[in-house]
Nucleic acid binder design. Structure first.
Lengths: 194, 194
DNA sequence: GCACCTGCCTAATAGCTTTAGGCAAATTCG
DNA sequence: CGAATTTGCCTAAAGCTATTAGGCAGGTGC
């Protein structure tokens, strides 16, 4: 009965790797036990249950993403910052698809509050400092950026943009150009069409 | 042994309802059998397996969405069409969250080819006829719209925009205003910054 | 060197998935 | 109308995941 040295920390980390290999929803307590060459029940001293493990992976992913974002934003402003943060999300999702899916995991309110979620919103807001937007337009813009980043990355990951020209990288660049232009020239509220 | 009259059709439809009630990933062959008051094994004559059932629900959702989209687009153009299609996605996701998730289910290439996926791309392209875009910009714009629609709806469904002002509806309107403005004034490719 | 605690184990229950083979209801046909 | 066939739902069984309870031994502290 050699002790393997299990830890919540190590389990979550291994879970994240597993997610990247086989997909987040294929992450299973059993498979994790197998990887540590340990019986399943042994994991339950370190992790409350399967959902708890998944939450751990989600929190890890959010944290890693936020760290990368902060590093990318340092010293940048305007379109430069916009592109940098956008690429952080896209690159992370391509490098770590399982972790990226994990970041969408529905956390409990307490977990969410303790998560890096706030940092993400903050970073997007930081980008907007390079543009001339005041509330509530700033919030609208934050939501738009979040939607585009997440939406594009999800669709790309799902294979939506492969197998058709032009290639995804080009669309991505042009979409960022377009967002930059839009933020520099954010339209006032339109009156409803008759 | 009264015959209940199971059918792939009925199973898929019931699966879709189940998805809306408990979430797409909680849709289970067992639960479905329970609802029809039938033994689990009985379903396997109508559905190849669990994944097949899920694919069926996904195809149904894509079809319903495309139908709604087509109806909404009829007789509309420009921003009017843009808003109409966007609202189709958002409203559908709010009315049928489980089905909406199902629409994200990864289909096999054959299933995808037979799906309503093509109609969706076509509808977004149709919207762009009201704007002055030529290829490849049109494709970039299609991808942007897809990203915003899907991204916003996903984030909203995940609860991302609740509990904070301004309310989601307002952001949605303003984002559609912004997209309309952007499409009317789509920027040329920007030279990379130095 | 002893007691304790902690970490991993065995055992057991329960749910979901999937396949194989059986019987009876519905349908087809003489 | 009744026989033959098809088809629909069933029982049985195996395999996998999740989760809990209780046990034994290895490492730790005195």
């Amino acid at each position: 009965m050699a002790r393997v040295g299990l830890t919540r920390e190590r389990l979550v980390r291994a879970g994240a790797e597993l997610a990247d290999e086989v997909g987040f929803d294929q992450v299973t307590v059993s498979e994790l036990a197998r990887r540590f060459d340990v019986k399943v029940a042994s994991l339950y001293s370190h992790v409350r249950n399967s959902d708890d493990l998944k939450s751990g992976i989600a929190l890890l992913a959010l944290e890693e993403l936020a760290d990368r974002g902060a590093a990318a934003l340092a010293g940048r402003a305007g379109k430069d910052a916009l592109t940098a943060l956008a690429n952080v999300y896209r690159d992370y999702a391509r490098e770590h698809p399982g972790r990226y899916s994990a970041a969408q995991w529905r956390l409990t309110p307490e977990e969410a509050a303790a998560s890096a979620g706030g940092r993400h919103a903050g970073m997007t807001r930081a980008i907007l400092r390079g543009y001339d937007l005041t509330e509530p337009d700033q919030t609208h813009a934050v939501r738009l950026l979040g939607s585009v980043f997440h939406g594009y990355v999800s669709l790309e990951l799902a294979g939506g943009f492969s197998h058709s020209a032009p290639d995804s990288q080009e669309s991505w660049s042009r979409i960022l150009d377009a967002l930059d232009a839009l933020l520099r020239n954010w339209p006032a509220a339109q009156p409803p069409t008759r």
